[in-house]
Design a protein around this nucleic acid. Structure first.
Lengths: 337, 337
DNA sequence: GCACTCTAAGCAAACGTTTACAATAGCTTT
DNA sequence: AAAGCTATTGTAAACGTTTGCTTAGAGTGC
């Protein structure tokens, strides 16, 4: 069909070997004049390299596959941007595959689509693999790394935020603002990723360090979704057994915010809220949400970097507190109730 | 490196041809007993097909490349889901490539990454190609189709909403609600895609049919972004020369909403707002935004279907009005000012 | 003038599949 | 019993690259 190096060889009178060397820029194997002739011919004929052939013979490729679950993870964009940036710098290519919404078959399809070709490596964006699919990945002999979630399994390398710190910091922040009855909402402590468990542990530690015993009804678990936020707020109920809440994601925060409004609970006047993630969503709702902001861009960049340079260790990216409008400082007057 | 069909041939005693036929399920060319033996061996050895080889010899592939621009198009998710769904039904694979934020080099990179391998076809999600890149695509001899934006160029096929209808319907709706001074905000009427121009035309037509002369300051163009919404509202200003506004995207709508709040203009009491898109964002802000809702899932599904079945014509997907809380019906009392 | 090095280029094998064509055996048809 | 068909399998070419090895010629040092 298309134009091949053979066509260029015929056109220019050189052998395919020489044409190949010019086109893949194997410096030192051709003269400048030859290069000029070959490149001109390639341009003239509209040559496009057939990667299938290249990958077949070289047995490797410059492609990084990014696997992402299709549930609305609104922070995937900056991660992907970070990956793209690093990939460009290292002259790698990026393709993205959707692995469905925690669906075994979709995961498997994405994984095999990726593994059925030579690959530089695989980056998994907050996708919690089923055991069989994880096995498939492990045996594939392709480097891979998780981004934004962490695991105990030493075989599973990751770049993520320090989720213990996130829980700890968020809690300390609220304590400093005078809150003592602090909730945690919408984090998943069942998943095989231990993100949620770590956040919970950090949260509990901060409370205990301040001589506060965490109450069971302060914690409303969930799957980081908008709906989880709605439900959490319903469960906290009108009686406000907490004065401030940490939400597991921006969507949880917004869900909680809206449910509170429906219940005539005003944020931050009646209830304070700090959310984990800090994506643009925090800035488009009213009030804007104070957040523990994760550095997603950096997560992607670093993930790609570690994958490319074949590093083995895990890495944490930085987090920071972004003060917006959803946390109120409690005063002496508040302590009365 | 990996296990090849040769290994399986050696293991089972069959020829590579037979193994290949079993593994690629060329029915009628092998017996059931043979298939059982071969499949067992493939499983045992952990065989994984090398797609590079397959694509090289067959000169085609089952891959659909989806090119998407990395700016926050919050509706890309349902489109991709639709594409995935159709692709699964037709046993095709989907890969996604980011084309940057209207950046020539990024576009080019995405395009060549895609074109450098056998491909079923290319789907472009609201990406406005630079002329040279469009040329690259046109000459590549690969079927392609745009999704969610439309063009005048008869070579560029698309699946999108009928943008003229969108503008027309939104305006008619507001007219029915008693509004006569109607704004249009955040649509791009400069782009080579004529989405914005069509919406504008539909809007104008509806006004004229109702003997209303569109005023220049009713229209605030923009690039569909959150910021465009903020700016538009600033430009409309405190004096409220319009009583209702159509916004070009959900983000524009939210931007406008928030800027209005800052200006102490209450929606929908002081100003009505209907937005175009109707993604989940409409439901997570307060008040929830009334919208002309596009069927993005269907857009993706149909786009993939047309690409796969090699259809030539353009297609429109359905739109509908979703009434939420951002439009107020004007009463006789309102007409006084 | 000889041995050596260097540069530029060609030859041919290799990568892992698919598939047209050929071959075989067993069966049916006439 | 010859011819033809069917079911199953094998042989070998082909896809478009890359690259180790080889070659040719020119330059260099003694």
């Amino acid at each position: 069909m298309g134009v091949t190096i053979k066509d260029i060889a015929k056109e220019t009178g050189f052998s395919v070997a020489t044409v190949s060397r010019v086109l893949s820029n194997k410096v030192g194997f051709f003269s400048q004049e030859t290069a000029a002739i070959v490149n001109a011919a390639a341009l003239k004929l509209g040559y496009k390299k057939n990667m299938a052939a290249t990958e077949l013979v070289t047995q490797k490729s410059s492609i990084i596959a990014v696997i992402i679950n299709s549930t609305k993870t609104n922070f995937s964009d900056p991660i992907i941007e970070g990956i793209q940036q690093k990939a460009n710098e290292a002259d790698k290519r990026v393709i993205i595959l959707y692995a469905g919404d925690h669906d075994f078959r979709s995961q498997q399809r994405a994984l095999t689509t990726a593994l059925e070709r030579p690959l530089m490596g695989i980056l998994l964006l907050s996708v919690d693999l089923f055991a069989d699919n994880l096995q498939l990945l492990k045996t594939a002999n392709v480097p891979f790394r998780f981004i934004s979630i962490s695991f105990q399994d030493p075989d599973l390398k990751y770049v993520a935020s320090d989720d213990w710190q996130i829980g700890y910091l968020a809690t300390k922040y609220l304590l400093k603002k005078g809150h003592r009855k602090i909730g945690l909402a919408g984090v998943d402590i069942e998943s095989s990723a231990h993100t949620g468990k770590l956040r919970l542990a950090g949260y509990q530690r901060a409370l205990i360090e301040n001589n506060i015993t965490p109450q069971k009804d302060w914690i409303q678990t969930g799957n980081y979704s908008y709906k989880a936020g709605l439900n959490a707020m319903k469960n906290y109920g009108q009686q406000k057994n907490v004065s401030a809440i940490i939400t597991g994601s921006d969507l949880v925060g917004i869900g909680l915010l809206n449910q509170a409004a429906k219940m005539n609970i005003s944020i931050p006047n009646d209830l304070s809220l700090i959310t984990i993630d800090g994506t643009y969503l925090c800035r488009i709702v009213q009030p804007q949400l104070t957040s523990i902001t994760q550095n997603f861009y950096s997560m992607g960049y670093l993930g790609a970097e570690y994958l490319i340079s074949n590093q083995r260790q895990n890495a944490f990216t930085d987090i920071q507190i972004s003060e917006r409008g959803s946390v109120r400082k409690l005063t002496a007057a508040d302590s009365e109730n």
